[in-house]
């Protein structure tokens, strides 16, 4: 039984120009203590699907799914009050911009102690002690002094540590990190990723890492799910994914890694993710795929078996024999 189980999740936004499907029939499983990376370009729906799990989407969004369950509880059937008891406690999330994700009007200590008071009902002394402990755990030096600081007095990396401390304050079973290192510089990125992995090892929580950085994936993840235009198009363990990607999109993403470049020019994927108005008939990647033929453009490819990474493709790569179509 997986910790987080999502079946056929779709999210639609009502926009001024009609409905836009940001997430399209995504399945996802996260086990206890596992690190799952969700990779994709901007607009591939990776953040939106996790925001839907957290219940943080704006009112313009409509969420439909066959199943969304966390720790054996059905999130779809849950009312808002019951969900509030769960998120921030068992299910926590951190975000891309640490500087703007903390409230500028309150000290970071206040913001952490608030979470402890709301979910755990701790007393004043207990909260302060736990907050100091958390700051030490996420590697913030001089915690007693830093608790009294306002977010603008700390650096981006420090603020992300504060966010992490706040997220793990109530010992969550699953932490969703939405591009936690994108806004930070490279040395700090590595520190934050190490911290997240270390915290996973320490506490045994599951970790969902949303990123568009294949380097981050290689370093941190255990299993990888690749999303494109709202669909999950491939899923493999990290080693096999890097060695034998099955979907042409995954392969193209890997080819675009600077470390892998063999020629003078870095290979790129031409075009952009289809939007609201240029959604193709068949395979969503077909307009940008160098292997696509008439069939790809006309028919929607079904997901293949687990041995082929559940790739949504008629002509998966790195197979000994082409799957008969």
């Amino acid at each position: 039984m997986s910790l987080l189980r999502i079946r056929n999740l779709s999210v639609e936004f009502a926009t001024a120009s009609g409905r836009f499907r940001a997430v399209d029939g995504v399945d996802q499983d996260v086990d206890e203590g596992e690190i799952l990376a969700i990779v994709g370009e901007s607009g591939s729906g990776k953040s939106v699907s996790m925001l839907a799990v957290m219940g943080l989407l704006p009112w313009t969004a409509t969420v439909t799914a066959d199943e969304v369950s966390f720790d054996g509880q059905d999130l779809l059937a849950m009312d808002a009050a019951a969900r509030r008891k769960m998120i921030g406690k068992d299910l926590a999330m951190i975000f891309q911009e640490p500087m703007s994700s903390l409230n500028p009007c309150f000290t970071v200590g206040w913001q952490i102690r608030e979470a402890l008071r709301i979910h755990l009902g701790m007393g004043r002394r207990e909260r302060q002690a736990r907050a100091i402990e958390l700051f030490e755990q996420v590697g913030i030096p001089d915690p007693e002094k830093r608790l009294g600081a306002f977010p603008h007095q700390l650096s981006g990396g420090m603020n992300q540590r504060v966010m992490i401390a706040m997220a793990i304050a109530c010992k969550p079973k699953l932490l969703i990190a939405d591009e936690p290192t994108t806004a930070l510089d490279v040395t700090i990125q590595a520190q934050i990723l190490d911290l997240l992995t270390a915290l996973r090892d320490e506490t045994g929580m599951g970790l969902v890492l949303i990123t568009h950085d294949m380097g981050v994936v290689a370093e941190t993840a255990e299993r990888v799910s690749v999303q494109y235009a709202g669909q999950k198009i491939e899923e493999q363990r990290v080693g096999p994914l890097f060695r034998t990607p099955h979907h042409p999109y995954t392969a193209a993403l890997l080819d675009a890694l600077p470390e892998r470049a063999t020629e003078k020019h870095l290979p790129t994927i031409p075009g952009v993710v289809p939007g609201q108005f240029d959604r193709p008939e068949g395979c969503l990647f077909s307009p940008r795929c160098k292997f696509a033929d008439a069939k790809c453009k006309a028919q929607v490819p079904p997901a293949l078996g687990p041995d082929l990474g559940r790739a949504r493709c008629f002509y998966p790569l790195n197979t000994d024999e082409r799957v008969a179509s």
């Binding site: 943080l56 509030r84 903390l102």
Partner: peptide, 14 residues
Amino acid sequence: GEDYIRTARAKGLT
């Protein structure tokens, strides 16, 4: 519409 309001909601506040 600010990010920190999303954070507050992610904390499970009323």
